[in-house]
Amino acid sequence: MADSKYLVGVFDDGDELLHAVEDIRHQGVKIHEAYTPFAVHGLDRALGYSFPRMGVAAFLFGLTGTCCALLLTFWTMGVDWPINIGGKNFFPFPTNVPIMFELTVLLAAFGMSFTFFFMEDMGPTAKPIIFDVRSTDDKFVVAIDLAKNKLSEAEISKLLKESGASEVNVKEV
């Protein structure tokens, strides 16, 4: 497998990074990812990310939990082992609400967790790419994959420096 070359721009401030990402993307450069020590509001829109669909997954997993709980309580109390207690019906809905709530929350939480880990490729065998260790402390880093851009390394490096990058490095992964 051939190594990928990334151009890594290091910024000192989150606002500088935000404006640099907007300027660089406006010039037609495709940015691989931006790494920050804390959330920078508006960075997701500046990077061109679409609206997250995790809420849809949460709803579907929760709906699955509710349906499973209804099926479980109906089957166990009404079909598999019906017990006539004082002439009450075999499927009392109010007594099953806590079970439905708990299974809804349980399946939604586990489903969203597994979906997140799967979609972000964060399994136990995944090896993270760390472009600059200082991005977890006090620096803001933008990584640009040179293979996916039409501009040369020198042109992108110049754009990064003009946008306020304190350092521009090449990293091979």
Rank of each mutant, 00 (worst) to 15 (best):
M1H: 07
A2M: 14
D3Y: 08
D3F: 08
D3W: 07
S4R: 15
S4G: 00
Y6H: 11
Y6Q: 03
L7I: 11
V8Q: 06
G9E: 04
F11V: 03
F11Y: 09
G14S: 04
E16N: 10
L17K: 04
H19L: 08
A20Q: 08
V21L: 04
D23Y: 11
I24Q: 07
R25M: 10
R25H: 09
R25C: 07
R25T: 12
G28T: 03
K30L: 09
I31L: 12
A34S: 13
F38M: 00
A39L: 08
V40R: 02
H41M: 05
G42I: 01
L43G: 03
D44N: 05
R45T: 03
R45M: 03
A46Q: 07
G48N: 05
G48Q: 09
Y49G: 00
S50C: 00
F51P: 00
P52G: 04
R53P: 00
G55A: 06
V56D: 06
A58C: 12
A58P: 08
F59N: 00
L60Q: 13
L63H: 04
T64S: 12
T64I: 07
G65I: 11
T66P: 01
L70P: 07
L71Q: 11
L71F: 15
L72T: 15
T73I: 01
F74G: 10
G78L: 04
W81S: 09
W81G: 00
P82K: 06
P82S: 07
P82Y: 04
G86M: 07
F90D: 04
F91C: 03
F91G: 01
F93H: 07
P94Q: 10
P94V: 03
T95C: 01
V97G: 02
V97Y: 08
V97C: 03
P98T: 05
P98S: 11
I99Q: 02
F101S: 06
L103K: 05
T104C: 12
L106P: 05
L106V: 11
G111E: 11
S113P: 05
S113Q: 10
F118I: 12
M119E: 09
M119H: 12
M122F: 14
M122Q: 10
G123P: 08
G123Y: 14
G123A: 06
T125N: 14
A126P: 02
I129K: 15
F131N: 05
F131V: 08
D132I: 05
R134F: 02
S135G: 06
T136V: 07
T136S: 13
D138I: 00
D138F: 00
K139N: 05
V142E: 01
V142W: 07
A143I: 02
A143Y: 05
A143C: 10
I144R: 14
L146Q: 13
A147F: 13
K148D: 09
N149V: 02
L151T: 08
S152P: 08
A154H: 15
A154Q: 15
E155S: 14
E155N: 14
E155P: 09
I156Y: 06
K158E: 09
L159Q: 09
L160N: 13
K161V: 12
A165Y: 08
E167S: 10
E167V: 02
V168D: 03
N169P: 09
V170M: 06
V170R: 07
K171H: 03
K171G: 00
K171D: 01
